[in-house]
C-alpha cells in the first residue's frame, strides 16, 4: 500500500459523514458501513473490473455529479455519494433486465433481480440454458490469486465468451477450483469421481493425490507438483494432506 492510499479521507453518503482510506474501492467502503449495494462481479481478493454495472451510485465531486459503478471508484476526500436515487434505480432495473435475458438460468441473477423488483425481462432471451454473465471473476482469480491465467475471454462485443484457450482443455489449469468457488452464477462446474477431479467448463481432468497417511484424495497431483515448484519445498512435503502434515 502506498502512502497516499493509507491516508484517511472523509466522504458523505446520503448526507452522512464517513471515513475511509484514500483510493480504496468505494463499494468496499460502503459495505463496511453496512450499506446494501448489489454486485455480481466484485470480490475483495481481486482487482475491481466494473463489468456487471449493478453497484451503480451517484457521486458528486466538486461541481460534477455523475452515475458510476462504485467497485472501481477510488475513494477520495470530500466526495458525496448518493445511493438509490431515481437515476440509480431506473438504470439498475434495465441492467437487471439485460442480465435476465442473457443468463436466464442463473439462480443468483433471478434472486437478485427479484430483490430489486424485477421479475421478467422485455428483452429476447438468447440461450435459455445460459448462466454465465461474463463477469470475468474466474479469470481474475486465476490470474491474480492463483497466479496461473489458464482461462480468459475470447472475442469481444456481443460475441465475448469466457473460455479455456480454443475452448479445449485448459492445459495451464491446476485444478484448484478457485474459479468455481468465486463464480457468482455457478456456471463452471467441478466434480470428483474415481480419484479424478474435473473442472467441466475448462475441460480439465486431473488425477487426485492420495494422502500417504489417511488415504483420502485431497488435491490434484498436478497442482501439488506446481506448489512444490513454486515454493521450492521437496515434493515429499505434499504427500500428506494438510490435516496429516
Amino acid at each position: 500500500m502506498t502512502e497516499s492510499q493509507s491516508r484517511e479521507v472523509t466522504f458523505k453518503v446520503d448526507g452522512r459523514s464517513l471515513r475511509g482510506r484514500q483510493g480504496e474501492s468505494l463499494l468496499e467502503a460502503l459495505r463496511r458501513y453496512g450499506y446494501q449495494v448489489p454486485s455480481l462481479c466484485h470480490h475483495e481478493a481481486v482487482s475491481p473490473y466494473g463489468a456487471c454495472r449493478l453497484c451503480l451510485v451517484e457521486v458528486q465531486k466538486g461541481k460534477r455529479r455523475k452515475l458510476t459503478t462504485s467497485c472501481n471508484y477510488p475513494l477520495m476526500e470530500g466526495i458525496e455519494v448518493f445511493l438509490d436515487t431515481e437515476q440509480v434505480v431506473s438504470n439498475r432495473r434495465v441492467v437487471l433486465q439485460l442480465l435476465l435475458a442473457q443468463a436466464p438460468a442463473a439462480e443468483r441473477v433471478r434472486q437478485l433481480a427479484a430483490e430489486y423488483g424485477v421479475n421478467d425481462t422485455p428483452f429476447e432471451v438468447e440461450d435459455p440454458e445460459n448462466r454465465c454473465i461474463n463477469c470475468g471473476l474466474c479469470a481474475r482469480v486465476c490470474k491474480e490469486v492463483v497466479g496461473v491465467e489458464a482461462i480468459g475471454f475470447s472475442g469481444r462485443g456481443a460475441g465475448k465468451r469466457m473460455v479455456a484457450p480454443y475452448d479445449e482443455t485448459a492445459e495451464d489449469c491446476i485444478g484448484c477450483g478457485a474459479c468455481v468457488f468465486v463464480c457468482p452464477t455457478d456456471c463452471i462446474g467441478m466434480s470428483e469421481t474415481g480419484g479424478i477431479r474435473t473442472i467441466e467448463r475448462w475441460h480439465r481432468k486431473l488425477p487426485l493425490k492420495t494422502c500417504s497417511v489417511c488415504g483420502r484424495h485431497f488435491a490434484p497431483t498436478f497442482q501439488l507438483n506446481k506448489f512444490a515448484e513454486w515454493t521450492g519445498l521437496p515434493r515429499g512435503h505434499f504427500d500428506k494432506c494438510p490435516d496429516c502434515r
Partner: peptide, 12 residues
C-alpha cells in the same frame, strides 16, 4: 506468457 492471454488477444 499464458496461452489464455494470447488467445484472448488473437480473438479480440
Amino acid at each position: 506468457v499464458p496461452l489464455a492471454r494470447i488467445y484472448s488477444l488473437a480473438t479480440f
